[in-house]
């Protein structure tokens, strides 16, 4: 073996040389067998993406189109394979979403295309790909990132879904508001039974966990915003749908509880600096339903106020809530048939779908805004824990 003479960092060009026969070993160690919870925790965010890109740069540098194609195909297929295998694990999916995006950003940042070079240092410009235009592969990677995003959303839904009805509707944190339970409410019994139920706190803890995992993986802030908006949409849609189907959830005090819960979710957004990501807006139908439970529902003026307030609810939803509304305390009254007729008449000309329930499967279209990195490739050092000692820094 040749003696490995350490070189000064400034002599490196930010490439990693590998033998063609080591390609499978490379994707195996760096993608298929990398444990996001183990080794990857201590890595700089996106390191696997940078390492793979530095290998790609070398294949480009030696002008070997077959090597470039083969590596890209192996990378993409390996990411797909690991997601097939561990696609129900939020950490794995989040890890590969952020790395796929980082790899895609690198392909742009070092493409030589002026539109992506605006923030580059001159050294970074020197490191642009020299022989191949990989625009078509960028498209494939972008398609892959969309697939991974959708998988992340599904994964997150599977975890959140069982918590939503219990945490947002059933569990009561405001003491003494409801007094007498509305008829038909399943009685919550001993504290032991409560231990198995989810509370709003469980939801908030889960949101914290998702958020901190994504931050740890160096997920693009713009992408985190989109995930959070989708999370809030699901929470709002599942909660509203259950409210629309359960008489025992349509009372003045439930309205109060929901508004409190929504305020806690808003507080969470504020705390995470995510107030402008559009998440709060997705809760608007639920907020309006909660308000509807609490406003007076008697006179023509009440009807007018309701119609202008509930612009995010469909007529079907408004009428359903009014029909289900169940007085709990002496000062509350059932909504009269006449009042509901008045509302229906007022809303007659609205152009809307007659759909009662919200689509809980809806996924907002995702985008991956270009996010160049200031990291200098030539300074990247690869920890031995990655098991890629067969790569040579060039």
């Amino acid at each position: 073996h040749p003696v490995n003479i350490p070189r000064r960092e400034k002599d490196f060009q930010g490439m990693l040389e590998y033998k063609k026969e080591d390609e499978l070993k490379l994707v195996k160690n760096l993608i298929l067998e990398l444990k996001p919870r183990g080794v990857a925790v201590n890595l700089i965010p996106g390191l696997p993406a940078y390492v793979l890109f530095m290998c790609l740069r070398h294949a480009d540098y030696i002008n070997d189109d077959q090597k470039v194609r083969s590596l890209l195909t192996s990378i993409i297929n390996s990411i797909k394979k690991i997601l097939k295998k561990r696609g129900d694990d939020f950490e794995t999916v989040s890890f590969w979403l952020s790395n796929t995006c980082r790899f895609l950003h690198c392909l742009k940042q070092y493409s030589g295309d002026e539109q992506f070079m605006k923030h580059n240092t001159s050294k970074q410009n020197d490191h642009c790909l020299s022989n191949f235009d990989l625009a078509e592969y960028r498209q494939v990677l972008s398609d892959l990132a969309i697939q991974i995003y959708q998988q992340l959303i599904k994964c997150m839904e599977n975890i959140l879904q069982p918590m939503i009805v219990s945490g947002m509707l059933e569990h009561e944190t405001i003491q003494g508001v409801s007094g007498v339970k509305p008829t038909g409410l399943r009685k919550r019994t001993s504290s032991i039974a409560d231990e198995g139920t989810y509370t709003l706190d469980s939801i908030i803890r889960q949101l914290n966990s998702f958020h901190s995992i994504m931050c740890q993986h160096g997920t693009d802030p713009e992408l985190i915003k989109q995930v959070v908006k989708q999370q809030f949409y699901i929470i709002g849609a599942v909660t509203l749908n259950n409210l629309l189907l359960r008489k025992d959830m349509c009372s003045w005090s439930k309205g109060m509880q929901i508004r409190y819960n929504v305020s806690q979710l808003e507080e969470w957004l504020r705390d995470k600096n995510l107030m402008t990501c559009g998440a709060k807006e997705t809760l608007e139908p639920l907020i309006q339903a909660a308000q509807l439970l609490q406003v007076k529902k008697k006179t023509d003026e009440d009807a007018e106020a309701i119609c202008s307030m509930c612009n995010s609810l469909s007529t079907a939803q408004i009428v359903k809530v009014l029909n289900l509304y169940t007085p709990v305390n002496a000062f509350e009254e059932r909504v009269s048939v006449l009042f509901i007729r008045t509302i229906q008449t007022r809303l007659r000309d609205r152009k809307e779908s007659p759909q009662l329930l919200m689509d809980t499967k809806l996924i907002y279209p995702v985008t991956f805004p270009f996010n160049p990195s200031s990291l200098a490739l030539e300074t990247i050092q690869i920890p031995s824990s990655l098991n890629v000692g067969f790569l040579t820094r060039v």
Binding site: N77, K80, G112, D113, C128, S130, L134, A135, E136, D143
Partner: peptide, 30 residues
Amino acid sequence: RPQSRIRVLLKAPTLAEMEEMNIFEDEDSP
């Protein structure tokens, strides 16, 4: 100037076509 370089466009297969080039053939077969 790096941006003035002429690079060769590498035609890429689609994601689905890529899947057919299974690089893990040996491992995946029973």
